[in-house]
Design a protein around this nucleic acid. Sequence first.
DNA 1: TATGAATGAGTATTCATTCAT
DNA 2: CATGAATGAATACTCATTCAT
Lengths: 188, 188, 188, 188
Amino acid sequence: MNKTKKSIFQSAIKIFSDKGYDGATMDDIAANAGVAKGTLYYHFKSKEEIFKYIISEGMNVIREQVEDAVVDVKNPLDKLKILCKIQLSLVYQNRDFFKVMMSQLWGKELRQLELRDSIHEYIKNIQVYLEEAMDQGIIKKGEASFMAYTFFGTLFSAAVYELINEGKGDLEYVIDTLIGYILEGIEA
Amino acid sequence: MNKTKKSIFQSAIKIFSDKGYDGATMDDIAANAGVAKGTLYYHFKSKEEIFKYIISEGMNVIREQVEDAVVDVKNPLDKLKILCKIQLSLVYQNRDFFKVMMSQLWGKELRQLELRDSIHEYIKNIQVYLEEAMDQGIIKKGEASFMAYTFFGTLFSAAVYELINEGKGDLEYVIDTLIGYILEGIEA
Amino acid sequence: MNKTKKSIFQSAIKIFSDKGYDGATMDDIAANAGVAKGTLYYHFKSKEEIFKYIISEGMNVIREQVEDAVVDVKNPLDKLKILCKIQLSLVYQNRDFFKVMMSQLWGKELRQLELRDSIHEYIKNIQVYLEEAMDQGIIKKGEASFMAYTFFGTLFSAAVYELINEGKGDLEYVIDTLIGYILEGIEA
Amino acid sequence: MNKTKKSIFQSAIKIFSDKGYDGATMDDIAANAGVAKGTLYYHFKSKEEIFKYIISEGMNVIREQVEDAVVDVKNPLDKLKILCKIQLSLVYQNRDFFKVMMSQLWGKELRQLELRDSIHEYIKNIQVYLEEAMDQGIIKKGEASFMAYTFFGTLFSAAVYELINEGKGDLEYVIDTLIGYILEGIEA
DNA sequence: TATGAATGAGTATTCATTCAT
DNA sequence: CATGAATGAATACTCATTCAT
């Protein structure tokens, strides 16, 4: 990704996160990137192409980082904890990207169906970790697929919390508390 | 709300949930409601007005139903369980409304800021229930505000699960399992 | 003209004078008249019909008043003076009506062509008075038709003056001064 | 002003003069200019912006031409005559522009209030010439401000005359006669 | 590689008019 | 006589996309 393309990429994330896919205009993106509108079309075929590019790049980064973080951990419980931690950190490090995803998850447009597939794929990955832990008796037996969604839902909690109480919380505290809730629940 | 207004209201929820706020057109809404476009403007000042109306009506329904369900329950743990249950049921009964909310939660448009305020208000209500339960030692001590977001995040899990695996799950099972996760965690 | 029709008539003059023909809406007129929109259509066939009615009623009033004022005056110079005076008074008494006329005089819409015909007719009336005075050697010989327009232009001066310096001037002074200018010019 | 912008500018004057501000459509203007509708918005922010641009450009032209014509004339009476002459010529050369002004002078819309301010400013300029001539005893003593409106009203006479008797009159004759009326009146 | 003027299909909104009550 | 809900054609304005430079 050269410099111009990168600045378009980053501007698009910012603009999509502020205005949503349909609300964002190519003018907004070009202005924010500091390039002429025509330049967008030199680097991307269309608005939708930019969107898809953002999603696929973003998902790749997440997948890689999760893999890297977990690869050397042997203990399955630690693995889950690390998984939680890295996921939540990523939400905080890529707020705008997550906002784009969250807002585009719903709906029946093609790009949205593709995004859902992409997330579905990702959740199936989490599921694998959960099944491992189940097999070893670390976590409750149950439908791993469903549990994976709960896991994913936690990201949402964190994102909404951050969205509404912008920057007020302490990242470390939020992450540790959430991991606690996921594993042990809130009951005393 | 007279008949015409109601059919506009319901169509708008459907269309907004399929296409998002900006993606939805007034033509879509009118066609779906079976009225002429001008009729939309006879009953609502603007597209944004329709949106706001949907949100405020929807939130009222939720608030009322939650209150009704919980009012006669004395035991604080039962109260939390009922709270969970009713919330999740509402997600399933008003899928489209929730999709609209979820997709419009993000972003910086006025309507979105207002929606966030509205949800913030609702979460503060949940917080009150949690504080009660904390005081009575039923649930872990901690920042009730933050815990309320976790609670809310569960709705999201359920919504995404339902969204991706459309109708495949058994509502009762989903609800009971989720309540279990929230209270006791996933750890064995 | 019954009470309802009259209030529509007067509201229409007011609204047309504030917003012009195209800028005025039937809603504006109805609201200002304190009746429902449908009521306008009970009394008038269309917006254009209201406009035409206003113009024809207005011109009638002017014609009558001018005639009445001049009928008993024998001396042709006095006649001209009276003519000036009454015309100018009418401008001041029917500001809104004149604004409607002035703004609709231009353009190529049917209603505007008709209005121009109407005014042309009126100016030809003035011309008759001028020809009388010319014949008797009271005023300069010349093309009476053209002189009549000058006469009419004076109304415009007065109207613009009043429009820009709203109500500041003394009516009597304005009228007397203008008559002086018309008859004797501004040269010392 | 580049070529495209200029053709939009000229079309707008034509269309506004035929149909008035509200009656004119952007489609009309675009078609007349031979450009796509979007092109109007590439060069002007809105319909109102086009209007304001026309007025300010038009007033500038008038101001400049009047100044140029008068600057070398020393004799104050000649100055007034030239002033009359140039003003009247401008009316004839810019018929459409004047029609736009005349029709938009009335009413209470923002653009109209601004137009009135603009004209008020212009009339104050005329007033200066009149005051000079008054000081030198060339014209009658009196309220110069008011006299300036009379002067301006003459433009109106000429415009209406031209409007109703399209092109029939001889420009030179009309101008000379009007100057005569203004300075010496119509009385014999 | 990058630009920005030009496009035209699409969109929210307005408003004169109709009509059943 | 009077109403006001409903209409749909018309209108200002937007914006993704194209293309000549």
